[in-house]
Simulated assay, not measured.
Amino acid sequence: MNYLTDFDVIFTIVERGKGETIIKATHEAGAEGATLFFGRGTGIHEHRKILGIPIEPEKEIVITLIEKEKSDAILEAIVRAGKLDEPGRGRAFVISVDKMVGAFHLEQKGQAG
C-alpha cells in the first residue's frame, strides 16, 4: 500500500459560528479542504452563567490536513482570520502526520511515498 507522507493536520477550535471563516481563510491560503464539527468546552476566559447555572460554550472544531510546506502559511491565515492572537478567541495547533491514505488526487500527482 502506498502512504502519503509529509503532511500536517491543523486543529482549530473557535466559538460557534466562526468555523466557516476559518475554512475560507485556509482555502485562500492553499488548503484543499477541511472538516468542521461541533463541540463544547470552556477556557479560562469563559465563565458564563444563566440564572446562576454555568454554561458550557459551544465550539466549532476545524480539521485541516495539509502538505507540510503549506503549514506555516495556513496557520498564519487561521490566526489572522480567527483573531487567535487575542485572548479568548480560540486555539490552533499543528500535529505531524506520519502516514495518510485516501487522498487519491494527491496520489495521482505522484506524492505517494
Rank of each mutant, 00 (worst) to 15 (best):
M100E: 12
E60N: 02
P54F: 02
H105I: 09
E56Q: 10
R89Q: 14
D85G: 07
L84I: 04
K83N: 14
F7E: 09
G33S: 11
L106H: 09
R80I: 11
S96G: 13
A81P: 04
I74Q: 03
L65P: 00
P54V: 02
V14K: 06
G30E: 07
E28A: 12
A29Y: 07
E107V: 14
T42C: 10
L65G: 08
I53V: 12
D6A: 13
I74L: 08
T12H: 00
G52M: 06
V9T: 07
I50P: 00
V9D: 06
T21C: 04
I23D: 02
T26D: 04
I95Y: 13
A77Q: 01
T35D: 05
P87M: 02
F37E: 07
R40D: 03
I63N: 08
F93H: 03
K24T: 10
G30R: 04
H45C: 10
E32V: 08
T42G: 07
L65R: 02
K83T: 08
F7K: 14
F93R: 06
D72H: 13
I44H: 10
G30I: 00
L65M: 15
A29D: 05
R40W: 07
G88L: 04
D72I: 11
K68W: 03
R48N: 09
I78H: 03
G39I: 06
K109L: 15
G113E: 15
R48Q: 13
V97L: 11
A112Y: 10
Q108R: 15
I63H: 09
I22A: 00
T21L: 08
